[in-house]
Design a protein around this nucleic acid. Structure first.
Lengths: 195, 195
DNA sequence: GTTAGCATGTAAGGAGTTACATGATTTT
DNA sequence: AAAATCATGTAACTCCTTACATGCTAAC
């Protein structure tokens, strides 16, 4: 509890290291491949973040494997500790605004595999209402302003609107799938107890 | 040249005030309607920005109109100065990476009406190659990593990929339109000189 | 008469980036 | 032997947000 980084990088790092131990350079590449369409991190933020996580005991330097030992130093491989796993779980459990805002939703979704079904649903629904608020605000503003906008502004808004509506449809499908899965899980449970 | 704000807010403010004088509160609402689907600014950044622009002589406080005078003070209306118009033109003329990155492209596009046709084309093309780089990097990474990803990660990447491809198609259409317009403008010119 | 919205501002801080500095290792 | 890429790190800075502080005005 020393570093209090609280950004989205912390989650990204902990989540990545949960899959497999990695060194900084490789970690960054993975992250930027995983999230390439949404954002990219620089070394200038990654290394200090790793330092902080190390300091807090969430990760440790792994003793190098036999085949990497001789001669070549450098390459500091980090591994998640038990405290780190706990911390990651804690981060993945909170389903608040910080989970469905633009900057963080992508990373949250990327680690849905490790997120509880209930939390997944609340995050998807939170994201959806966030976007719907945006659509409502836009439509309200449209009726309020009786101004003629130029064609570029109009085209920008049309495209933005379409993008958001498209994401809402995507979320609808995901939510349906999650709900169906939840029902199936429940009936499985019942079947078992009914036997 | 004192403030050196250099952010995207400066452009947004100068661009908005170029259309019509406004006070801070109203300015923010307009901006957040105009760019609502992409981003939103807070008062905490807007007011200091206005202060800086005022200090640099890019904007001035307008003497209140007769109908706003009596009783009610507050409401500081800002108007673009000649220097401010020059500064705006300067900002709108530079067609570098700062024009087609994620954070700034939307605002740049929103003020395309005030941007030269040539610069418009270069920004649209710059944005497109930026996105195509992203697509290439992704596809390269795909062939490199022979790892099985979980369904959520896969779904995230699929959606991200589709979003970017969709924007590229949108840009293609815009570029075609711009090019056609440029040709038409040129032939108009020729017709006139040919007479 | 109190809530909601209009209106302006500041101080502290967050979450990153850029640019720099350094060196090992692999490829050409 | 030069160039590219792998690898780690820091200091200064940027741009913006959050939270706070203040007061007016309109609507219910």
């Amino acid at each position: 509890m020393t570093g209090s980084r609280g950004g989205v990088l912390e989650l990204a790092v902990l989540g990545s290291l949960h899959e497999t131990p990695l060194h900084g350079y490789e970690l960054r590449k993975r992250l930027n491949t995983l999230l390439g369409m949404f954002r990219a991190f620089s070394y200038g933020s990654l290394y200090p973040c790793l330092k902080g996580l190390l300091n807090d005991g969430y990760i440790i330097e792994e003793q190098p494997a036999a085949d990497v030992v001789l001669g070549r130093r450098s390459k500091i491989v980090y591994r998640l500790t038990a405290e780190g796993k706990e911390r990651l779980e804690e981060l993945l459990t909170e389903a608040g605004p910080s989970a469905w805002e633009d900057e963080s939703f992508g990373i949250r979704f990327a680690f849905f595999r490790h997120t509880e079904a209930e939390v997944r649903l609340r995050i998807l629904e939170g994201r959806r209402s966030r976007l719907e608020e945006r659509l409502d605000a836009f439509r309200t503003a449209l009726t309020r302003t009786r101004e003629r906008l130029d064609s570029y502004t109009l085209e920008l808004q049309r495209h933005g609107l379409e993008s958001v509506e498209r994401e809402v449809r995507w979320l609808n499908e995901l939510i349906d799938t999650e709900r169906a899965q939840a029902v199936r899980d429940k009936s499985d449970e019942t079947d078992e107890t009914d036997d």
